[in-house]
Design a protein around this nucleic acid. Structure first.
Lengths: 122, 122
DNA sequence: ACTCCCCCTTACGAAAAGGTAAGTACCGCA
DNA sequence: TGCGGTACTTACCTTTTCGTAAGGGGGAGT
């Protein structure tokens, strides 16, 4: 058993949803895939400044396992792997909408810095 | 400065919102305070089965610092401390609504166990 | 021949988060 | 006298998460 028992019994819906989005880059991955529909590994890598290859694959694998992203491998050389959101991934993104708006308000309130100004609308 | 630099520069609103709710018990604290309006420390403790006193105070302090909960100490003996949501706490809870609904759906989909059946509506 | 690109995997280690247990100070109750 | 209740704090340890660095296997560009 290589996997830790991450998906424990949940206390409420919030619990279950947070389990799936908690992870340093998962929110951004969701955002990238929602914005571009389909992205390859190296495109995601470039889209998430600072992510390591290890964390990116790790997060993508977990999100695939959670039924949020679809992974399609094209048997070519050089290899081409395309990621996209599943239906559940899209509905999750919609459910995150109000939370994102709240976060934007919070950033504005306390004048926190934002790294990429092109993404503050999310 | 005893506090670690938790509140980093954020990449997007989701980032900022998740920073505030990530923590093993914060979702539940939000839920409890929203449901009961006002709760004392020991009431919250009893309402969150399995939480330790350390984690409860730690989370409450962070949430206070983040402007989500209001802490009122009554100078009595024995001491009485009452916690309630601030306006920002209430709006955050509303923003979490769709996410909670998504989580409930997810639990239902994969038939995960739920600890407290009285709370699955959240 | 050399390097770069692609999509990873593995090993190692630091940092953060969380849990356990004990101590604090005061009071009411038996 | 001793226990329980209130609201914590502190020290210590384990678990989880994240990052860094290296390798791999094949092909295409220079």
């Amino acid at each position: 058993m290589a996997k830790a028992p991450r998906r424990g019994p949940y206390i409420c819906g919030i619990d279950a949803a947070l389990d799936v989005v908690s992870g340093k880059w998962k929110g951004l991955i969701l955002w990238e895939l929602d914005a571009h529909r389909v992205r390859r590994f190296s495109e995601l890598r470039r889209g998430l400044p600072g992510v390591s290859e290890k964390m990116l694959t790790q997060h993508l694998r977990e999100m695939e396992e959670d039924g949020l992203v679809h992974r399609e491998v094209h048997a070519e050389v050089p290899p081409r792997v395309e990621y996209s959101l599943t239906e559940h991934g899209r509905t999750l993104n919609q459910a995150l909408g109000p939370l994102g708006a709240w976060g934007v308000e919070r950033i504005r309130r306390e004048g926190s810095e934002v790294v990429d100004t092109a993404k503050t609308s999310h």
